[in-house]
Amino acid sequence: MKARVSVGHELMRRKNAVFFTISRRFIRVWQRNWSVYRKTWKVSFLPPLFEPLFYLLAFGIGLSSFVGELSYRGFQVSYISFIAPALIAVNIMYNAFFENTYTSFVRMYYQKNFDAMLATPLSLEEIITGEIMWGATKSVIATAIMQSVISLLGFIHYPQGVLILPLSFLGGFAFGSFGMFITSIMPNIEIFNIPVFLFITPMFLFSETFFPINHLPDWVQKLSLLFPLTHLVRITRSLSFGLLDSGLLWNLAYLLIFSLIFFPLALLKMHSRLIK
């Protein structure tokens, strides 16, 4: 366990050096969640399998007769192929975010799993990192399942589409870190409704998911660019259409910066919540 990153040297000195360490041991926490997942995989993999089908049926077929074709970055695309990649992006967001909010909260608060782990050689930072990595992994699993379905229907262009899988890990990491940050400041589980209603639902609707944003009011467009989901949708959609260009690096950079803000923030806030 030599690879070590220390977060917040100053805090570390002040708080007696204990716990501000991350080593590869976080994998143990990930493994625990993976073991639990394997017990219920037969149920867990059903939603990402069927949800895209429901959406494609309702929006793609139900709505497309009203919408017809639309133009995206100079291309004429069918409505159903416009929303198919967005469904993947939304799923990436949902899987990591909900794993690291409700489910992590249950493990932390009700099951006291973190307390038990803190009596082993694991640091709190490793526990939280393991949880976020697991959230990202769930995004990858869901993406793999969903992408297979959507690919079979012919909406994803390959080989560019292959990149959606590693992208789902980054996206999952970003939304998982954000979710974990929310978890660290939530007094109880009911209040999660508020961040969902404030952030997740608006993102779901206004991140260029179901319609292009260029004819929306200017301020909505600007706000939309602040949403990490907008950037995730743009990359996913471009990859699905087989468009790989340097403009995507900006979207990628945004997701990276978002992660680099919320991941340490989640660690710090969790530390002050749990280490007393």
């Binding site: 143990r28 073991s35 082993t120």
Partner: peptide
């Protein structure tokens, strides 16, 4: 508190806890 892992059965509670110690 009895903070056993509610997601795991009796045997797994021991086996997976062991992994935390490498």
């Amino acid at each position: 508190d009895n903070n056993l892992d509610a997601d795991l059965n009796v045997r797994e509670n021991l086996e997976i806890f062991a992994q935390y110690f490498n």
